[in-house]
Each structure stands twice: as C-alpha cells, then as structure tokens.
Simulated assay, not measured.
Amino acid sequence: MIEVENVNTPGRTTRVNAAKYADMLSAFEAALPRQSPGLTQAETKEAVKPHLSDELFPGGKTCGWWAKTVQLDLEAKGKLLREPTKPLRWHWK
C-alpha cells in the first residue's frame, strides 16, 4: 500500500494499492504533456490506457478512478499543473 494525497482535501491521506499506483504513474509519465494546453480528464483516461499493464488493468477497467487518484495526488505534491480552462486540463509542471 502507498499513501496518496488529494489537492482538494489538504492534509488528508488515503492508502491505495502501490502496484496499481506505480503502473498508473508510469502511464501518466508517458501520456501527459510537459506543457500547456495539457489534457482533459477524458483525454487523460484514454491516453494512459495503452501504457497500462493488462495484468493490473484488464481491458482498462477502473483506469478512470486510478487516473483521477494519481492526478489529484500529483497535483497535491506540486508535480502537475491544472490549467484554468473549461474543461479543466493538466500537464506536468
């Protein structure tokens, strides 16, 4: 298990599966752009799918929840930047 943060609830942590977190983090590193305009949540979900382990995410199931979890954690740690657009977009800081 690994502790993750949530930018929307500062100071609170949650424990999640470390292997799934690491796999999704690796997918984020491969899929998310380094500069603006970034990707929307829906675009991110689709962009990470090809980079995920079939063992951990068979058929891409639950990848949306994990993508959001990793995004919120990275944002809380100051590694992702949220663009003030509609819809919201994220990219590496």
Rank of each mutant, 00 (worst) to 15 (best):
T9V: 14
L56I: 10
P84L: 07
S36R: 13
E3H: 12
E55M: 11
S53M: 08
M1A: 12
I2N: 06
H91P: 03
T14W: 10
M24K: 04
P50S: 03
F57H: 07
W65R: 13
L52K: 02
E43Q: 11
E83S: 08
V4H: 07
A42T: 13
G64M: 00
R34T: 10
P84K: 09
Y21K: 09
T9H: 14
K20E: 07
K86I: 04
R12V: 14
H91S: 04
E83R: 09
P33Q: 08
T69Q: 11
M1Q: 12
T40P: 00
A67K: 03
T14V: 10
T9E: 14
P10Y: 07
R34Y: 08
A19E: 15
T9C: 11
E3N: 11
E83G: 06
E29C: 05
A22D: 15
V70R: 05
E46P: 00
A30F: 02
K79N: 08
Q41A: 14
G59M: 02
A27F: 05
R34K: 12
G38T: 01
A42K: 12
T44V: 05
F28C: 02
K93Q: 05
L88E: 09
R34A: 12
E3R: 14
E43R: 03
L74R: 10
C63E: 06
P50V: 06
L74K: 05
L52T: 07
L39F: 01
E5G: 08
K86Q: 09
A76W: 09
V70C: 05
Q35N: 15
V4A: 06
K93C: 02
F57T: 11
R89P: 00
A22P: 04
A19G: 07
Y21Q: 02
K79Q: 14
R82Q: 10
T40D: 08
G64T: 06
S53G: 10
G60N: 03
L81K: 13
A22K: 08
W65T: 15
E43N: 01
K49A: 13
F57R: 06
E83Q: 12
D23P: 06
K49L: 14
H51V: 05
G11M: 07
N8W: 15
T69L: 13
K49F: 11
W92H: 00
T40W: 04
P10W: 08
R12H: 13
G78F: 00
E5D: 11
L32Y: 01
S26E: 12
L52V: 07
G59C: 03
Q71H: 11
K61R: 13
G59I: 06
G11P: 08
E75D: 10
Q35F: 10
Y21V: 06
F57L: 06
T62Q: 10
Y21E: 09
K45L: 10
E75V: 07
T9L: 14
G64I: 02
F57Y: 10
L39A: 05
V70F: 07
C63T: 14
K68M: 11
W92Y: 03
A22S: 12
A31K: 00
S26Y: 12
S53H: 09
K93L: 01
D73H: 09
W65H: 12
V48S: 04
T85R: 04
E29K: 15
V7H: 15
T69S: 09
